[in-house]
Design a protein around this nucleic acid. Structure first.
Length: 942
RNA sequence: GGGCCUAUAGCUCAGUUGGUUAGAGCGCACGCCUGAUAAGCGUGAGGUCGAUAGUUCAAAUCUAUCUAGGCCCA
């Protein structure tokens, strides 16, 4: 009996069922490296049809996390799919190397060793620190199976890059887009240095809490109520009395209700909601409300400074709250972020008359020479003396401190460099670009970035730090006036580009090498210059990558087709790149911007160390393999936040096995196939033609999904193809033919022709996502199939053109109907299986009581119905002949009208070769246990 | 507090311009097979669409509010 098994053509392949990804992936990476898979992939495309995905540079600090892994895999899918669809798409990865986090880290290390170092040494250490992490991340990205020019990435600390960044600043200078202005920043009086947001630590601190009244002898105030304006005051509250000398305004909320109250013979303006709270604090007992007005009505009233003889107008601001205080906010534009913004709006002076130590300058009456902490009690004293102090006490609250010296810090206005949003209509042009020149994916990105650009203040591009690209400008030693010139900047940029450590040149060069001969200060006529020591905001670094990379590298061109980053980059890289490019090129740097969401845990919460729900890419690679991580990326809808959990991953592992096995089965049934023996579409068995059409349709859908960046559709379509169309339908049906029929016969070759094309389409569709597996299968292709291909180096250079089927719609409808009937037959068999009458479907004799239409379909000459339904006998009968009451045991179809199905054991004996039950076994004495079909095949074998 | 976004079966996703009993695959349950075998096949049970209130003859699909969550600001 087992003799017959040897006469069958059973599947055979070296492609293992078990993936063993953990071990095989690193081998595959080595293989790709050896053969130059990336180069071959890119070389296989049309050199005139380029596609540029420009990589946003991750920060070269720390290991990669799920977010960066997601981002890089998405980019890899884009790049691979574009190449495999015939375009030429290079991938030049980059890194963001400058900036505070690295400098901070390095400084912390140095502090431990009690070292204070000069700029150049700090820069040197930062440089090697960034290089170290760049290398680590490069290894981690490569491990994910991402292909690109890993040996020649771009980095913002590269001399050429630094020169390009500095040059872009020169371009802004050339267009008069750069302005100098005051801005309040965190300042440590102890370290005498500016601090970044990240360098400030909040700790408890005791501060005075004072309520102050500002006289408001504005005649216009009579409109509020019938009162004596000489006795009218507006009340404020503050915990920084030392900023009172620099007060320039009082802010109220336009929509809050404010009251005018009479108390102790005076009149006060304050928020209605805080009246009782204040009355209690001031000891008011018999106050009464004279009027209630909206904050907006107070705008423009002229209050007077409580100490000095100058005005302090009432202004409007949205950030005013009713939590504490009076609802009227003391506003000193030189000492607060919001105060500063309000100051800009109302044209208030940014007044901050103090030195690096936080000491008031001589011009400040009453407080000259005092530092801010010393000034606090003196200011209170003075207010009391003038009768404008309502009450004073001490409170403990959270207050910013310097991370280095742990001393409390202050907000202090300093001179900074800005890209003006309204210089050269930058804002207008950027907004126009957002609306008209860029495709935002998803579409809401447009609204998001538009509103950000519409409302943002000037871009402060200067930082008082060491690790970055210097702002190339000179400062007059005598009068502090700055000097710069675009041509001069360009010349210096040439030095950066050729200097071994780039713009270290700026800090190393003797000053006389930098200063143009005979340069004199336009303000004071002086001729002694020092270099500007501020560096550029790192967002300016990365924001100029279009100039440093996209325009300059041979692999890319300006503008890029796509920028692809997380949704936080609407404020970050998309934003800075747009402003820089529009400001210097009048064009956005990208044609389309795609954003993805954040990786969150199973419950949709963000990953954080404190919650302990962080999953590292490495964990997934170790447990499942990078392939599963890639699959997770494609299975998820990245436009929303993406959840990841063990359940999700386990489901994906199941799906992976299914896809892998489908590949394996296709490979194993093609081991004896030679494309030279392919069957032309016209000669294919109708079922096979239908199957090929079906696969081609799925293939086209997947191609479309790739183009539209809808990768989760790729995954779902791919999975459905393998599971529904192939595994449980087509492959199951044609098993009989593949195993049993004559090896070189049409029936078998017809099926194999379809399997062969299916496999190659499948591999193409898989490769951008399931790169490791697609390559593994590609390398395992039977020799004859390989011989037929243009190349066999790598799956990424596979460009297979399947036969065109274009099945007529009615033919497709016919098969769809048959498939539905097949489903009904399966349902009909099921109860018999429960009754143990039927085991496998081949045991069955099925009688279809059907309409003429269905009977014609099933009886069609070009359909092997027994094969199609995988049963041993089929009988057709007119449903009308069946008794009106359906006999017991006959199944009534659910999805096909007038179809009733009877199932019984097939008569006859099982053919030992094909396992079909036959009523005429042994027609040939030589093969007593074989059916006529098998007998015929057996005869050809001798 | 503001801007933008999300919320459909255990999981991952579909649900066209509002219109018959809300779909798919996986997982699960039960069964079959042992010639894809640490595979393969079949059948079945699971959602009333985050909540509430509206608009409408009719809403998962439109509006408002709320809840939970995310990004970016403050």
């Amino acid at each position: 009996m087992s003799d017959y098994k040897d006469t069958l053509l059973l599947p055979q392949t070296a492609f293992p069922m078990k993936a063993n990804l953990k071990q095989r992936e690193p081998e595959m990476l080595k293989f790709w490296e050896t053969i130059g898979a990336y180069e071959r992939m890119v070389a296989a495309g049309d050199p005139d049809d380029t596609y540029v995905l420009h990589d946003g540079p991750p920060y070269a600090n720390g290991h990669i996390h799920m977010g960066t892994a997601l981002n890089k895999v998405l980019k890899d899918i884009v790049v691979k799919s574009r190449n495999m669809q015939g375009q030429t798409a290079h991938y030049v990865p980059g890194w963001d190397c400058h900036g505070l986090p690295i400098e901070h880290k390095v400084e912390q290390e140095l502090k431990k060793k009690n070292k204070e170092l000069d700029t150049l040494t700090i820069r040197k250490i930062c440089r090697s620190y960034a290089a170290k992490w760049l290398d680590v991340q490069r290894g981690e990205f490569k491990r994910l199976g991402v292909l690109g020019t890993w040996d020649a990435p771009y980095m913002t600390m590269d001399p050429q890059y630094e020169a390009a960044t500095a040059r872009e600043l020169g371009r802004f200078m050339e267009r008069d887009g750069v302005v100098r202005g005051k801005k309040p920043i965190y300042w440590c009086c102890d370290c005498r240095t500016a601090l970044a947001e990240a360098e400030v630590e909040y700790e408890d601190h005791k501060s005075p809490s004072i309520y102050v009244r500002f006289p408001m002898a504005d005649p216009k105030a009579r409109e509020l109520a019938d009162l004596d304006v000489n006795r009218l005051f507006i009340l404020i509250w503050t915990t920084t009395p030392w900023t009172i000398p620099d007060n320039m305004a009082v802010a109220v909320h336009p929509e809050f209700d404010y009251v005018v109250v009479e108390a102790g013979g005076d009149f006060y303006v304050l928020a209605e909601g805080l009246l009782e709270d204040c009355a209690a604090k001031f000891g008011w007992t018999d106050h009464n409300v004279l009027a209630t007005v909206k904050g907006a009505q107070l705008e423009g009233l002229k209050a007077k400074h409580p100490i000095y003889d100058r005005q302090s107008p009432v202004v409007l601001a949205d950030y005013v709250t009713l939590e504490t205080g009076t609802g009227c906010v003391h506003t000193a534009p030189g000492h607060g972020r919001e105060d500063f913004e309000t100051g800009l709006k109302y044209g208030l002076e940014v007044y901050s008359p103090m030195n690096d130590r936080g000491e008031f300058l001589p011009e400040v009456e009453h407080f000259a020479g005092l530092n801010v902490w010393g000034a606090n009690p003196k200011v209170i004293e003075k207010l009391e003396e003038l009768g404008n102090l309502m009450t004073s006490r001490q409170i403990a609250h959270s207050y910013p401190h310097c991370w280095r010296c742990k001393q409390p810090v202050i907000f202090r206005a300093t001179t900074q460099w800005f890209i003006g949003m309204d210089e050269n209509d930058l804002r207008t042009r950027a907004l126009d670009a957002i609306r008209n020149k860029v495709q935002w994916i998803p579409a809401w990105g447009e609204e998001r970035i538009h509103s950000m650009i519409a409302s943002r203040p000037d871009w402060c591009i200067s930082r008082q730090r060491n690790w970055g690209v210097p702002i190339s400008a000179l400062i007059c030693e005598e009068c502090d006036e700055t000097w710069f010139d675009a041509k001069w900047v360009y010349a210096i940029c040439e030095k950066y580009a050729t200097h071994e450590t780039g713009c270290d040149y700026w800090f190393e060069a003797p000053i006389e090498d930098l200063v143009p001969a005979g340069l004199t200060c336009s303000k004071c006529g002086g001729s002694h210059w020092k270099r500007e020591t501020d560096i550029l905001d790192v967002w300016f670094d990365s924001g100029t990558s279009y100039a440093a990379v996209v325009e300059r590298r041979a692999e890319t061109r300006f503008p890029a087709d796509l920028y692809l980053e997380g949704s936080d980059q609407h404020r970050g890289w998309f934003h800075s790149s747009l402003l820089a490019s529009v400001g210097t090129r009048d064009l956005p740097p990208y044609r389309a911007v795609l954003t993805h969401g954040y990786v969150v845990d199973a419950d949709g919460r963000k990953m954080s160390k404190s919650i302990g729900n962080v999953i590292a890419p490495q964990e997934i690679i170790d447990k499942f393999g990078a392939e599963i991580l890639r699959m997770w990326v494609s299975a998820s809808n990245y436009q929303e936040d993406i959840r990841i959990s063990d359940e999700t991953l386990n489901r994906l592992v199941d799906a992976y096995r299914r896809i892998r096995n489908t590949c394996r089965y296709l490979l194993s049934n093609l081991n004896d196939f030679d494309p030279a023996n392919r069957v032309a579409v016209a000669d294919l068995l109708p079922l096979d033609r239908y199957a090929l059409d079906m696969v081609a349709r799925r293939h086209a859908a997947i191609g479309q999904a790739y183009v539209k960046y809808e990768f989760h559709k790729v995954y779902h379509t791919l999975h459905n193809l393998c599971v529904v169309d192939l595994s449980s339908f087509y492959l199951d049906i044609i098993k009989d033919r593949l195993y049993v029929e004559e090896q070189g016969g049409l029936k078998r070759r017809s099926a194999q022709t379809v399997l062969w094309q299916t496999l190659l389409m499948l591999l193409e569709d898989m490769a951008p996502v399931l790169s490791f597996t697609a390559e593994e299968a590609f390398q395992t292709l039977p020799e004859a199939i390989k011989a037929d291909l243009d190349q066999t180096d790598t799956v990424f250079a596979l460009r297979f053109a399947p036969d065109e089927v274009n099945l007529p719609a009615d033919e497709r409808a016919r098969w769809d109907m048959l498939a539905t009937v097949r489903g009904e037959v399966n349902k009909a068999i099921e109860p018999k299986r429960k009754d143990r009458v039927i085991g496998k479907s081949l045991d069955a004799h099925v009688t279809l009581h059907a309409t003429e239409a269905v009977r014609e379909l099933v009886a069609a000459e070009d359909l092997d119905a027994r094969e199609f339904f995988i049963v041993s006998k089929i009988t057709l009968a007119d449903v009308a002949d069946l008794a009106a009451d359906t006999p017991i045991g006959v199944f009534v179809a659910e999805d096909v009208k007038d179809l009733k199905i009877a199932v019984e054991p097939a008569p006859g004996v099982k053919c030992e070769r094909c396992w079909r039950i036959s009523e005429d076994l042994g027609t040939d004495p030589a093969h007593p246990a074989a059916c006529p079909r098998c007998t015929a095949v057996l005869k050809t074998l001798v």
